[in-house]
Design a binder for these strands. Structure first.
Lengths: 134, 134
DNA sequence: TAATAAAATTGTAACCATTACAATTTTAAA
DNA sequence: TTTAAAATTGTAATGGTTACAATTTTATTA
């Protein structure tokens, strides 16, 4: 999947995020890879294009994206947090053997028992051994 | 709910955990309160009964309980981890207003799409505003 | 265009829950 | 009692993330 600069700028503007060089590159990476990267992953990918890049800028960027609702922060019982550009409801499976993270479908009515509760974030994370590691 | 010492000892022995004073007190606290406490919560509750108690002992104990499968570790996007003596499948709802953590039912067949995957941990955590804080 | 303000970026230091580890104490076994 | 094993303790280290001030870049206005 490939996104033009104009598409990336539009994506950010629609979500009330001023486009900047760093933000466009982070967004592009998230959209074109969709690999639930850590801050370190993102940093290493972009440092080659922006040699003065600071890790703090990546932290600032993903936190801004999170506040604006265009990424979800994943806490998968690892040391580092991960970021997911896919904000539609889905589950994550982490293979403890190969480390891969798989998306899986989840019924929309999960948690419907919470009547009267306002839910604005749903984390569904499974752990185990994936089919390729058996 | 109240547990006798003999019941607590039996509970640990059945799960291959040598009973000790600290372990019995931690287990008793988890069973009788069921409030998803942090290490700090547990420590503060027991320090009155064991003045020489060390935080490390609480860390050791909850990690041992986790390894033996009698508690689940909850990562609810807080600084601290929490521990839940109820290891049956259920979801957690964290109210961002009052901080309360609610259990809720979850269909047993959630994640059945993961055919061929061995799942040994299921985390289902929701965040929002509870019915009492609206 | 220049001057000014606002926003973005950077780098360092601090934070702090958790773990590592060695020393001490307690418990169990012989 | 002796000895070994296990449990507990206290301190130091870890390391991802945040705080914050300084610098740079971008946008606005005269």
């Amino acid at each position: 999947m490939h996104f033009t600069n104009d598409e990336l700028i539009e994506y950010l503007r629609k979500n009330n995020i001023r486009p900047s060089n760093i933000r466009l590159k982070v967004l592009k990476y998230l959209l074109e890879n969709r690999n639930h990267p850590t801050v370190e992953d993102i940093y290493h990918h972009i440092i080659h294009e922006i040699p003065t890049l600071s890790r703090t800028s990546i932290y600032n960027t993903v936190n801004l994206f999170k506040d604006r609702g265009i990424v979800n922060e994943l806490s998968l019982n690892e040391k580092e947090l991960r970021y997911d550009i896919n904000t539609r409801l889905h589950g994550h499976f982490k293979c403890e053997s190969c480390g891969n993270i798989y998306d899986f479908q989840v019924a929309e009515n999960i948690g419907d028992g919470l009547k009267g509760f306002v839910v604005y974030k749903k984390d569904i994370n499974f752990y185990g051994i994936c089919i390729n590691c058996q």
